[in-house]
């Protein structure tokens, strides 16, 4: 049976818009079931705020199944909170106890400007994908799907990287605000597969250079892997770096031939 937590103190970042300076506000949730999810606790708080005539706290969320990557909160200084390999929306109040004091902030990164309260703008991620995070394949022209056998371990590794939900926790957790885990996960997914070979080096080069326009540099802290709700390994960063280095050499070779 569910138990009830009492007297949860929440210190929540409120910021009225991108240009507002923002501040912490303290709220109290008198009682909540431990079966409730963390975001349901915020829903409950928002209902109270609306009842009191106050503006609800803005936060990003959608599927609440840990797959869409929309939710994004720093909870007590940790991206997606205390439970490993769990997105905020899958965090439940049973991980907390009565009287807990919880600090809730938006993702903290220069490349993710705050829109309002706890909501940030992650469109820089879309720009990275647009620069090369795809395999060019015109609709209708594909050969039979079983024409290229892909060894199971290769398909599995590609899938491990492809699981990235694009939430941005890696950037938020990184002291440098780097997006290497996100970018490299996509590079690894596509560069591991036979279908991705034709654009392999161009992809690595353009995605990494686009990433550098927005994000900080990777200095191998490894915080990203620890924060990733999908447990994507930082090995993908090594793979992407290797492809980037090769891309630079190959592209010089191509230029010399022109």
């Amino acid at each position: 049976m569910s138990n009830h937590l009492k007297d949860i103190i929440l210190k929540i970042w409120r910021q009225n818009g991108p240009k507002d300076t923002g501040h912490f506000e303290t709220y109290k949730v008198d009682e909540i079931s431990d079966e409730a999810s963390f975001l349901e606790m915020l829903d409950y708080l928002n209902e109270q705020l609306i009842t009191d005539g106050k503006e609800a706290i803005v936060f990003d969320h959608d599927c609440r199944e840990g797959i869409c990557g929309t939710c994004s909160l720093m909870i007590n200084g940790q991206a997606h909170g205390p439970e490993r390999s769990t997105a905020t929306c899958q965090l439940h109040m049973r991980k907390f106890s009565s009287g807990a004091e919880i600090v809730i902030e938006p993702w903290r990164a220069a490349a993710f400007p705050i829109i309002k309260d706890l909501m940030v703008d992650r469109s820089a991620f879309d720009r990275i994908i647009e620069s090369g995070g795809f395999i060019t394949s015109v609709t209708g022209g594909a050969p039979d799907a079983n024409l290229i056998p892909i060894p199971k371990p290769v398909a599995d590794s590609a899938m491990d990287s492809a699981e990235c939900i694009g939430c941005g926790a890696c950037v938020a957790a990184c002291p440098n605000g780097a997006a290497n885990l996100f970018t490299s996960a996509k590079i690894a997914h596509l560069n591991l597969l036979p279908q991705g070979q034709a654009e392999r080096y161009k992809r690595a080069e353009s995605m990494i250079e686009k990433m550098d326009e927005y994000f900080g540099s990777c200095t191998n802290h490894g915080e990203c892997e620890a924060a990733c709700p999908k447990e994507i390994s930082i090995d993908v960063i090594a793979l992407a770096n290797a492809d980037y280095r090769k891309a630079k050499l190959k592209n010089r070779k191509f230029i010399s031939r022109i």
Partner: peptide
């Protein structure tokens, strides 16, 4: 189409 785009569908050991 989806395989050509790189969707990593599950595979048998033979590929």
């Amino acid at each position: 189409q989806m395989v050509a785009q790189g969707v990593p569908f599950a595979r048998e050991y033979g590929g």
